[in-house]
Design a protein around this nucleic acid. Structure first.
Lengths: 157, 157
DNA sequence: TATTGTTATACTCTATAACTATA
DNA sequence: TATAGTTATAGAGTATAACAATA
């Protein structure tokens, strides 16, 4: 043993950090998913926006920007792409002509379950290595971290 | 209750996916860390490379590219930046004049503990929301996922 | 010919800031 | 003046491919 109070400097690798493991694993899940979406010419940001538009009401570029932690300029481009795919439309609000309301088209509504299936498949393929209890534990721990650190933004990148 | 065998389509949000939570939490840890590094004009890729150079032997641009999951062209630029900071040097291998051996300078060796302290602080600040047992559990689960999916690359982005 | 490393080029994503229309 | 949204511009980061030197 070393002297009391005399810490021994040990070279420590990146792997001592929980953040390291989190990033390692998360990057793999995300990049695999991103590749699946890419095969359909879709970015993760577009996928997240599409989901948000489905679930929230009175979605505007500004509310999307807040929810997704992106600037309005960036959101505007994401919406341009979704509009080009004819999955969303922008209509001017009647109450305030400055505001654009974003909504799904019929085609957008139709494609969402397909995309959700891709996400489901990606998720279950990856986490099947854990049993149900372990998955629940992981979810609980992640939820708590998200909660404690007030993580509100949808993850885009 | 619906008819047996007739699944009821429920709109499900992104948050059903474990991958979603993983990304949400991981992005926060990583971006906070990236910001800390950025204050010192350092990218995450540079930080990872620097660690790798410290720990591995006979590091070359090619081995780094493999380890970090980047192309050689991209690694070349990362090394350029570290060299400009005078933290590493490149020397031609005697056995094969095509090969460049990358090693830390004295200044590079000196700065590493400082950077490690930043990483430690970032990590413990974030995961202090979990007690020791929970941290161990999280680590175990992440390790298992990394292991099962043969995740070898160092996470860079 | 094959391989190592670098460089040239292009692309994606995003932020910042200028701008238009409306309030 | 302030706000919603778009557009113009720029920067970071990375991949692809052309390239030079060496094997």
């Amino acid at each position: 043993m070393g002297k009391r109070g005399a810490p021994i400097a040990r070279p420590r690798g990146l792997e001592v950090h929980l953040g390291y493991w989190l990033r390692l694993v998360s990057n793999r899940v995300s990049s695999t998913f991103a590749r699946s979406l890419q095969e359909r010419q879709l970015s993760v940001a577009e996928w997240v926006a599409l989901n948000q538009i489905e679930r929230a009401t009175d979605v505007t570029p500004a509310t999307l920007a807040d929810a997704m932690g992106m600037t309005r300029g960036a959101i505007s481009k994401v919406l341009d792409k979704l509009e080009a795919k004819q999955w969303i439309t922008r209509t001017t609000s009647r109450e305030d002509n400055r505001v654009q309301l974003v909504s799904l088209t019929r085609a957008g509504r139709r494609v969402l379950p397909e995309l959700a299936a891709i996400a489901d498949a990606n998720d279950s393929r990856f986490f099947d290595a854990l049993d149900a209890d372990e998955q629940a534990t992981l979810r609980k721990l992640l939820n708590r971290l998200a909660d404690v650190h007030r993580i509100n933004n949808l993850p885009v990148d």
